[in-house]
Computed example of a mutant assay.
Amino acid sequence: MLTVNIHEAKTQLSKLIEMAVKGEPFVIAKAGKPMVKVTAIEPPEPAAKRRIGSLKGKIKVPEDFDTMGQEEIEHMFYGDE
């Protein structure tokens, strides 16, 4: 496994990252002592795509949907008149 000092890691960071992404991890050392190991991470799972209309035919909207609970709502706003 490749070991580089901090100064070299700073100057060659892009190249070193590309190596790690390709499966070649490396170690960054300070004064010859290994400090960190850099490896690639697994890419996150792509989010499930939302499909518009996927519930069509599975949900029934009542005919009085736009007036459902109208009396109750009016009572909450206006009280007994």
Rank of each mutant, 00 (worst) to 15 (best):
M1H: 06
L2P: 03
T3M: 05
T3E: 12
T3K: 03
V4M: 02
N5S: 09
N5K: 13
N5H: 14
I6P: 00
H7V: 14
H7E: 08
A9T: 02
K10I: 14
Q12Y: 05
L13Q: 10
S14K: 14
S14C: 10
S14D: 13
S14Y: 15
K15R: 13
L16K: 01
L16Q: 00
I17M: 04
I17Y: 02
I17T: 10
E18L: 03
E18D: 14
E18M: 11
E18T: 11
E18S: 14
M19K: 12
V21H: 03
V21W: 12
G23A: 04
E24R: 05
I28W: 01
I28C: 01
I28M: 01
A29F: 01
A29H: 07
K30Y: 09
K30H: 14
K30C: 09
A31V: 08
G32V: 05
K33C: 06
K33M: 14
M35A: 07
M35G: 03
V36G: 00
K37C: 02
V38Y: 03
V38D: 00
T39Q: 14
T39I: 11
A40C: 06
I41Q: 10
E42R: 06
E42L: 13
P43I: 00
P43C: 00
P43T: 02
P43Y: 00
P44A: 00
P44Y: 00
P44V: 00
E45V: 05
E45W: 09
P46C: 04
A47F: 07
A47Q: 13
A47R: 14
A48I: 15
R51Y: 07
I52C: 03
I52T: 12
I52A: 11
G53H: 03
L55G: 01
L55N: 04
K56Y: 01
K56I: 06
K56A: 09
K56V: 08
G57F: 02
K58G: 02
V61Q: 13
V61H: 08
V61Y: 06
P62L: 09
E63I: 13
E63V: 15
E63A: 08
D64V: 11
D64K: 04
D66S: 07
D66T: 12
T67K: 03
G69W: 06
G69N: 10
Q70L: 15
Q70K: 11
E71R: 13
E71T: 06
E71G: 07
E72Q: 08
E72S: 11
I73P: 02
I73F: 14
I73S: 08
E74M: 11
E74V: 02
E74L: 05
H75Q: 12
M76Y: 04
M76V: 12
F77R: 07
F77N: 12
F77Q: 11
Y78P: 01
G79T: 03
D80H: 05
E81N: 11
